[in-house]
């Protein structure tokens, strides 16, 4: 059975796929940032009128 990777590991893989190789400390900082901004993003997504184009 495949084990679930940690959030930091998933970030590392996403960065590596783009050719960027941050340190674990860097990735922990990004994880903390995402933990703060993603709930705010979700609230904005909910309020956005669906017909709004970029």
């Amino acid at each position: 059975m495949e084990s679930e990777s940690s959030p930091v590991e998933r970030l590392r893989e996403t960065a590596a796929a783009q050719g960027v190789h941050p340190t674990v400390e860097d990735l922990e900082g990004v994880r903390d940032f995402l933990d703060r901004i993603l709930p705010a993003l979700a609230e904005i997504e909910e309020r956005l009128p669906p017909e709004t184009a970029p």
Binding site: L11, T14, A15, Q18, V20, P22, D26, L27, G29, V30, F33, L34, I37, L38, L41, I44, E45, L48, P49, T52, A53, P54
Partner: peptide, 20 residues
């Protein structure tokens, strides 16, 4: 790095929210 690792949909949501 935060910008690199935000989901791609976050950028488009940001652009849509700017229009709104």
């Amino acid at each position: 790095l935060a910008g690199l690792l935000l989901p791609s949909t976050a950028y488009l949501t940001g652009r849509r929210a700017r229009s709104w």
